[in-house]
Amino acid sequence: MWTYLAPILLLLASNVFMTIAWYGHLKFKTTPLLTVILVSWGIAFFEYCLQVPANRLGHQVYSAAQLKGLQEILTLSVFAAFSISYLGEAIKWNHIAAFVLIIAAAFLLFLE
């Protein structure tokens, strides 16, 4: 069971760092671009420290396509929570519809 769950938990944690690195700077529009790039790279380092082992461990029980599908579902979930809680942006009906379609596509990767 742990061999199936550990990669998912690591991917979830890596997505938190990735989302902060990619979108966290949007609240700091007056900060120089070079500064936010360097800070984002620093945050992304920790994302890679979690993502690489997640995929290495995960590939023992999931295909690469399945890992990518899991990644997309987790990315959307983390992004939606971040967008609402940190950026204060609403998730609209069309965002939800698009997310559902992406999740459905990722689900197809697990059909044998």
Rank of each mutant, 00 (worst) to 15 (best):
G88M: 04
L12P: 11
F110P: 12
H95D: 15
A97F: 14
K27T: 10
K92I: 08
K27Y: 05
S14W: 02
P53F: 05
I43V: 15
L57Y: 10
V39F: 06
T3D: 14
A44P: 05
E89T: 11
L50W: 08
L101S: 08
K68T: 12
L34T: 01
M1G: 11
K68H: 08
S63V: 00
A54K: 03
L11V: 09
K68R: 09
I91M: 11
L38R: 02
S40C: 10
L101E: 07
W93R: 07
F107E: 06
S77A: 15
T30E: 09
Q51G: 03
I91A: 04
V78H: 08
A90C: 10
L38C: 12
W41V: 02
Q66C: 04
L33M: 07
V100I: 15
N94W: 14
L87P: 05
Q71P: 07
F46V: 06
I43E: 07
V16K: 01
Y23L: 13
F82N: 00
G24S: 03
Y4E: 07
L111M: 12
L70F: 14
E112C: 02
Y48M: 13
T31K: 06
L76G: 14
C49H: 04
L70G: 08
A44V: 04
W41H: 08
L67R: 01
L38S: 10
L26F: 14
K68N: 13
A6Y: 06
G69S: 11
A104W: 01
N94L: 12
V16H: 02
L67P: 10
A65K: 00
I37D: 02
H25W: 12
L33W: 14
F17Y: 09
A13P: 11
H95P: 09
A81E: 03
G88R: 09
I84C: 01
W22I: 05
V100N: 07
L87T: 08
H95A: 03
A13R: 00
T35Q: 03
F79P: 06
P32E: 00
F46K: 03
L11M: 15
T75K: 02
L5H: 04
Q71N: 12
E89W: 00
